[in-house]
Design a protein around this nucleic acid. Structure first.
Lengths: 187, 187
DNA sequence: TAACCCATGTAACCTGTTACATGATTAA
DNA sequence: TTAATCATGTAACAGGTTACATGGGTTA
């Protein structure tokens, strides 16, 4: 369900083909959702069957033809209605947290190694978000659209910072076997 | 896949019935994953077929019999192996971020209302995490197990704090003075 | 008398992942 | 010549949601 809306939102911001959508979802700015190309092509044909998007066949030379998808009035209304609804927030569902909550089942060194790997991944992701963020910040006259995308990016950055700070806390905790400390930099 | 491990981890910490697992997953401390009872019963029977857990039939008076599930040696090893592996981190997949990234499609007031609802939910969740956290912190001699659970909880707290701070940033950006209402729970 | 708690399940359906398929163009 | 890019799909399977089913005991 949410994937359809994510697609609708992406197409509302910028009409494109299924192939381009895949790239936007998995590589670049729209990094808050992911989906395989199979899933996306399926969702696109459903959305078109429901009348929320239309496709225009683009004939190309020296490469395969493609379909350019555009949001219809019906699609826009569908999207607008959804934005106005607030769903219940969902649980974190993080592998790492499950692993840590049974950390006593393995040697501390194992846990530290696993933690380190996640730590580095979060730092990587933060870096890529900050890079995009810089591009937005440098725009002299940002469009209203891009301001919203910048805001969403800010959330991503805050999430990564929270994970990174926590990894450091956890590694510190595991580094010297101590009791639960009351202080820490919780704020 | 991850659900099986989450169940294994929960049972490793404390053997219990499927019914009790549902409660532990959806209500209380193990609040980092969620699953319906149908899903959990299914996963339990799979795990038992694979030999990772065993069930003991508990006969009860005045109420239905139940099955007490316990992790086997094989199950413990399976879990330990998994803890040592580090998967790739996954995208945020937040409805709210999708909504915000096409915020220009609706009137600002609509977006603010939606944001406010998420904001309150995150504050609620933070409160419940902090309540559990306090119980851990008050334990005079915390077990090694509970220290790990406390650490996982710290991650949950940091996540909620990040969301809350971002909601305030976003609401501020959208031109609404952030009303810092201390008790928004009764709304 | 109705609703909820205990306790476990089946079945239909939708969503997401993995594998398979095609076929021309371009860069190493 | 090997691989990657462009561009779109089908099919089998695993994971997750919703609806349906049972039946005694307790609380309002």
């Amino acid at each position: 369900m949410a994937l359809s809306y994510a697609i609708l939102a992406a197409l509302f911001n910028q009409s494109c083909s299924g192939y381009d959508l895949v790239k936007r979802f998995n590589k670049s700015v729209e990094c808050f959702w992911s989906a395989s190309h199979q899933q996306i092509y399926k969702a696109l044909s459903n959305l078109e069957a429901e009348g929320h998007i239309v496709s225009e066949k683009i004939e190309q030379e020296n490469r395969p033809n493609k379909k350019l998808y555009t949001v219809t009035d019906s699609g826009r209304q569908h999207l607008q209605r959804w934005i106005g609804e607030a769903e219940a927030i969902s649980p974190i569902k993080s592998d790492l947290l499950i692993k840590l909550s049974v950390g006593h089942a393995v040697p501390t060194i194992t846990l530290l190694q696993t933690l380190q790997t996640y730590y580095e991944q979060h730092k990587e992701r933060l870096k890529s978000y900050q890079l995009i963020s810089k591009q937005y910040a440098q725009a002299l006259q940002p469009s209203r659209e891009s301001q919203f995308q910048y805001l969403a990016l800010r959330a991503g950055i805050r999430q990564q910072l929270a994970w990174i700070a926590w990894c450091e806390e956890a590694m510190g905790f595991l580094g010297q076997p101590v009791a639960v400390r009351e202080s820490s930099s919780a704020s």
